[in-house]
């Protein structure tokens, strides 16, 4: 991407919702406000996050997902073939609404395109189209309809492909397809997940990214490099860059979305820490391979934590750029 600086900075997708929006979402559930009022507040929160990204000086923006709850349930809600089975505990007292496939899955209409257009209309910086991948949607849903997981995954891949094509037509130059569940069954299912990604990204000219986190990345490496995307975005910070050892043994042939910020800690990383992470990564990556981002979506942080973390990240990337220039 020729108009981007070295070490372009971006984020993984979600930002924390402001308190007024959380309150409005609760009210909407209880039927105390109408959809138009919720929509107005979602747009307001989106504008605020676009403005914050401008101020932070990020290079590739996201819309912040103010209008999404869970990354799988959001797509399930907007598609044919799904119902919500109920709440299921993921850990501690965290519950998520788990979808269930009850019929043939498919798009009713474009899902994310309108929000993409809205966000992109607010800025001159490129906004990423953000999609949840077919393997993850299937894996994190119950299935009462398709006889095999394979059939469900491939049908979802076709639907997500249509969405990606529509995003591209709407002007998205970057499209990210999140697959945090891709290593759930590394031996049995990786090939299926790869095949699904091939369907999703088939014929796209946009710069494609997949985000993978939590789980055994080494188990799917180097096979992971066969995923038909330009960039793989990974969480490195929360394991103190242990993955670099894995990449040292077998060269990482794609661009890397380098997670340099722990998305699940309250502590705001220092600029030095970010800079150090980038420096260490340059032992295994070429500088032009490296995009700088947090480990994961920041929606579980407070707004202040998220802004603090991103400010360190952007400044760390700027200093890494400077260092490299002074060497050359």
């Amino acid at each position: 991407m020729s108009d981007l600086p070295l070490f372009p900075t971006t984020t993984v997708g979600s930002f924390p919702k402001p308190p007024y929006l959380l309150e409005a979402r609760r009210k909407r559930l209880r039927g105390q406000i109408d959809p138009a009022e919720l929509r107005r507040l979602e747009e307001q929160a989106t504008r605020e996050w676009i403005q914050r990204q401008e101020e932070l000086g990020l290079d590739i923006f996201v819309d912040g997902e103010m209008y999404r709850g869970d990354m799988v349930a959001y797509f399930a809600d907007e598609m044919d073939g799904f119902a919500i089975a109920g709440l299921v505990r993921s850990y501690g007292n965290r519950y998520y609404p788990k979808p269930v496939v009850t019929g043939p899955v498919g798009r009713k209409r474009p899902i994310t395109v309108e929000w993409f257009r809205f966000a992109q209309s607010l800025t001159g910086k490129p906004v990423k189209g953000m999609l949840t991948g077919p393997y993850t949607i299937a894996e994190w849903s119950f299935n009462e309809y398709y006889p095999t997981r394979r059939e469900l995954v491939l049908e979802l891949a076709r639907a997500i492909h249509e969405e990606a094509v529509d995003l591209e037509r709407a002007g998205a130059r970057f499209i990210q397809i999140d697959e945090p569940a891709i290593h759930t069954r590394p031996d049995e299912d990786f090939e299926l997940a790869r095949e699904a990604m091939e369907i999703v990204t088939d014929g796209l000219s946009a710069y494609t990214i997949t985000h993978v986190c939590y789980g055994d990345v080494p188990r799917i490496y180097p096979r992971m490099l066969d995923l038909p995307v330009r960039q793989i975005d990974l969480a490195l910070k929360n394991e103190d860059f242990a993955l670099l050892e894995v990449f040292r043994q077998h060269r990482f042939t794609k661009d890397i979305g380098l997670g340099v910020i722990d998305a699940h800690s309250h502590r705001v990383e220092t600029v030095e820490e970010v800079l150090d992470g980038i420096r260490r990564s340059l032992e295994v990556f070429e500088p032009r391979q490296v995009y700088v981002s947090p480990d994961c979506g920041l929606k579980t942080r407070t707004i202040d934590e998220a802004v603090g973390k991103l400010a360190s990240m952007v400044e760390g990337a700027r200093r890494a750029r400077e260092e490299l220039r002074s060497v050359v």
Partner: peptide, 8 residues
């Protein structure tokens, strides 16, 4: 059975 909603 905690993978399921209670009714299921």
């Amino acid at each position: 059975l905690e993978f399921l909603p209670r009714r299921a």
